[in-house]
Write a protein that binds this DNA or RNA. Structure first.
Lengths: 209, 209
DNA sequence: ACGGTTCTGGAACAAGCAGTCTACAACTCG
DNA sequence: CGAGTTGTAGACTGCTTGTTCCAGAACCGT
């Protein structure tokens, strides 16, 4: 019986995500959101409840896609060591050079982790999940004989988590894509890769710009 | 002839820095600043000009001390390779476990680099300076025979910049000090250290908590 | 002690904010 | 087709924001 909505809820959340990612929670006004989503004031309140609630929807959605993105790559059928290099390269490409839509996950972590307990908890478990995925991938690589079995897999997993967050941060701060890529590939040399691992990775690493 | 000020300008800037670092530019109201600094409304406007101007004072001051902090360590008399490890350890200690006062430099980079050109430019040159300091230190280490002469010093410098920013970001997001330390020390293994370098670094790396 | 200059504290201001209310339009089911 | 329910649009409401104004207090050199 109700009049059907003139907007797609998921689409609205995604537009809100982009807006919040660009100007932050405190820096985004309700009018900004209305303009970005095309919704009428009351429609936003009917559908979501308010600014904070819409933010949390967008934030949780972005967080889980960030976690999923890692998970997808780290559990793919590729050689374990290649999965990690793939993630490093794609992070450099996605976060390089201003243009690309910045991550709300990272922004919310920096802006609100200190003040909002729910955001802080979500960020913390997301990082744990991401770390676990990296770690699992490194264990796979050890079983495949690509990485020294004696290496501390968890230390390496945590390490990649930091490298990739650092790349995102620097990318947002304006560091060029090629520089990010160089950083990512350098980080791989921290891993005690066996001769087999090097063979699987291939020799030439250039050709991304 | 004028009535002397009842506040120390540098002290006010420092208190403002802490406040802005905790709640961000948009998230900090003038009343918050007045409470944090103890100034009267008009005094703040007389002495600094306004909210934005005070923010820039605090931001520029924090940025140059962040750059100086790197520079001081990287040009110290210590063995080059030890300087880098020192910086990694101190970053882990300072940014570990919520409590410690967060960096306004990092926060402003994430919050405002996308919208404020002056902040973006400052952040960009600060990162360049920091990268140059790391690179110079690695070159020193190569001359001292601690790092393979064939390594790409600039790539390694850029890399440490990313690792350390990543550590700061994760620290703010709630990652424990011990974990940050583990990340920092793992990042060192990306460097092609010569036998002499390993000797200079020492063998046991534990005992920080 | 006094005049000039600056600092101080609070009141006042306009603009912008998140959120609410009301009238109307659109659709579905009986 | 029409009654009922829900979405839409925009005016409206307190409240907070950054900033300015004004009157008085504090200090210094003479």
């Amino acid at each position: 019986m109700p009049r059907p909505r003139m907007f797609d809820e998921a689409d609205v959340v995604d537009r809100a995500r982009r807006t919040f990612a660009e100007t932050g929670f405190a820096g985004t006004s309700l009018d900004d959101l209305l303009e970005a989503t095309g919704l009428a004031r009351q429609s936003l309140y009917n559908a979501f409840g308010g600014k904070k609630e819409l933010f949390m929807r967008a934030f949780l959605s972005d967080t889980s896609s960030a976690v999923d993105a890692v998970s997808t790559v780290m559990r793919s059928a590729e050689d374990p060591i290649v999965r990690i290099r793939t993630k490093l390269v794609s992070t450099a490409v996605e976060h390089g050079s201003a243009a690309a839509s910045p991550s709300l996950f990272l922004r919310a972590a920096v802006e609100l982790s200190g003040s909002d307990p729910e955001v802080a908890a979500t960020v913390a478990t997301a990082f744990d999940d991401i770390r676990a995925d990296y770690t699992a991938c490194i264990v796979d690589a050890q079983h495949a004989g690509e990485i020294d079995a004696g290496a501390d897999a968890e230390a390496l997993g945590t390490y990649f988590c930091a490298v990739i967050e650092g790349m995102s941060t620097l990318g947002r701060a304006g560091v060029a894509r090629a520089t990010l890529l160089q950083m990512g590939l350098t980080s791989l040399t921290a891993v005690p890769i066996t001769p087999l691992g090097h063979e699987r990775l291939g020799t030439e690493d250039g050709a991304w710009t």
